[in-house]
Design a binder for these strands. Structure first.
Length: 500
RNA sequence: GGGCCGGUAGCUCAGUGGUAGAGCAUCGCACUUUUAAUGCGGUGGUCGUGGGUUCGAUCCCCACCCGGCUCACCA
């Protein structure tokens, strides 16, 4: 390919020509009277006649997103990443050198302009430039103006390009920021203390998942990136922090999908003297409040359906949901005992062609039936409550039923968004649960929970009764922004390295 | 990891067993209120990588790389 025709070479040549003109090509700063957004906010509604009277002067800067040339009169469209404004560059209105600079500009460069704000014949808010200041060069061609950037691989690998040319992408991350800010406000107003607990842990607990492993050289110790903050936050409830929360990353060394990124953001919070029923009410209030703050509505469009965050959410017990779905599937009534007795549950699963891990008890099989038959139908927010004890090593049992724990998961849009329970605070029972997990681990379950003696010691000092909950922030943002993939709501999702 | 689909110009996409096209971008000329500006003319590609079949492969076959969807596992 000829260098003369390489778009990159052309831009380098324009940069060199600017230097030859004595233009500072990477200046330190530019004195703006305001951002483009501020200008649009100030004058966007003002009629042309008012602007002719006011004749406001302004200096602002941004990236060039369009150039329309007419020889001696030209238009630039500048963006500050949020808003856009047009600049009118007339040869007879700017110094000779500024016009020479203008002619060396490329689509994507940063420039500053100063001049008078007015409206053109077509009523477009415009700065009539009396000067142009070159600010930075864009040395690569940007994606095209009509279609933007469509290629998802490039959008994820070079998110900056996505943000430059696809305004909807910017909007997603603005909503994400509002969601997080809204949650903070909501919990702060209710007396929750925000904390940060270890991301690197000697023992990866608090959830059932495979961790990332790393090593600390000086202490010569194996460390795990956390799969959950749970056990540390509960230690804080032992320490007297009655209401506590953390919004931060968890890391799970598992598959990648439209709903899974190896690092993801979780809100986790604990409230002393609350149980899982209290948390259902709090969750309804929090999600509807945050939705209204983030998108201005407690309803959103997702996957061709409208999801309503208005309270109350539907509530259904896990075994009852599984029993009903199984009955429908088989066309014959399934009895509650069929999900309680291991042999009957195994027989039911076989008839339903539902698979479950080796060594699974009735509780695990019931959970597998629920996941296989029910999950995909849960579009509107639904609390699925009363999980089998077998799959819930950190939850408190129901007083009337030791095989069931006071736990719920919140499903929205056919996937799990939250997980909560009345916290198990009996150290002896906690030890028995860990021991049951160790048995699973010995059978080859890499996700089984490890024994955590330090955590049990903390419980032995006394933990108040408490409810705790985790909410997947990425998934919540997916719902609120109508994003079909978790990668659309994570600025830099994990990708394989690009081949050179 | 399995299955299905995709990778062609800077971008968005067509297309074919006889080594390739459009629109936009880009370059040149014209143009002092345009906004997908317009008109005329031009440049631009080892068709993801490596093999194989063939007289000849971007196209057919195989392997690999990257990505998407999906199943499995999880939040």
């Amino acid at each position: 390919m000829s260098e003369d025709h390489d778009l990159h070479q052309q831009r380098l040549a324009n940069l060199a020509e600017l230097e030859r003109l004595g233009v500072e090509t990477y200046p330190r700063t530019f004195a703006r009277t305001g951002t483009i957004s501020a200008l649009v906010a100030a004058h966007g509604e003002r009629p042309a006649a008012d602007l002719e009277v006011l004749r406001p002067e302004a200096a602002t800067a941004g990236r060039i997103l369009a150039v329309r040339t007419f020889g001696k009169a030209n238009f630039l469209v500048l963006s500050d990443g949020v808003s856009r404004i047009q600049a009118y560059i007339r040869q007879d209105s700017v110094p000779e050198r500024d016009f020479a600079v203008f002619k060396l500009l490329d689509f994507g460069d940063f420039v500053g302009v100063h001049g008078r704000v007015f409206r053109t014949k077509t009523n477009e808010l415009t700065i009539w430039a009396s000067g142009i200041t070159f600010l930075a060069k864009c040395l690569h061609p940007l994606p095209e103006k009509w279609h933007g950037l469509q290629d998802v691989e490039t959008r994820y690998r070079q998110r900056y390009l996505d943000l430059i040319v696809n305004p909807d992408s910017r909007r997603v991350f603005e909503v994400r920021a509002k969601v997080v800010a809204g949650i903070r406000r909501f919990l702060d107003a209710r007396g929750f203390l925000e904390v940060e607990t270890p991301m690197m842990q000697p023992l990866a607990g608090g959830a059932l998942a495979r961790p990332f492993v790393t090593h600390h050289n000086t202490l010569d110790m194996t460390l795990f990136l956390r799969i959950a903050p749970e056990l540390y936050l509960k230690r804080l409830t032992v320490g007297g922090v009655e209401r506590v929360f953390e919004i931060n990353r968890n890391f799970r060394n598992e598959g990648i999908s439209t709903q899974h990124n190896p690092e993801f953001t979780m809100l986790e919070f604990y409230q002393a003297y609350a149980d899982y029923r209290d948390l259902m009410a709090l969750t309804e209030e929090m999600l509807s409040t945050v939705a209204r703050e983030a998108i201005g509505s407690d309803a959103c469009a997702f996957g061709g359906e409208t999801i309503s965050f208005a309270a109350p959410f539907r509530r259904v017990s896990l075994r009852e949901a599984a029993r009903e779905a199984a009955s429908r599937r088989l066309g014959a009534e399934v009895a509650p005992e069929d999900l309680r007795d291991r042999e009957k549950a195994a027989a039911l699963a076989a008839r339903l062609e539902v698979t479950y891990p080796d060594g699974a008890g009735a509780g695990r099989i019931a959970t597998a039936v629920f996941e296989a038959l029910c999950e995909a139908s849960l579009v509107q927010p639904t609390f699925v409550f009363d999980f089998p004890t077998e799959v819930s090593p950190l939850s408190k049992q129901r007083p009337d039923d030791p095989d069931t724990v006071e736990r719920f998961e919140l499903y929205i849009g056919r996937f799990e968004v939250a997980n909560a329970f009345s916290e198990l605070n009996d150290p002896a029972e906690q030890r028995r649960r860990f021991e049951a997990q160790l048995a699973d681990r010995q059978r080859g379950d890499a996700e089984a929970h490890a024994m955590d003696e330090d955590y049990i010691r903390a419980l032995e000092y006394g933990m108040p009764p408490a409810g705790g909950e985790g909410i997947g922030i990425d998934r919540l943002v997916m719902l609120l922004t109508g994003s079909p993939s978790i990668r659309d709501v994570i600025l830099f999702p994990l990708m394989r390295p690009q081949a050179e």
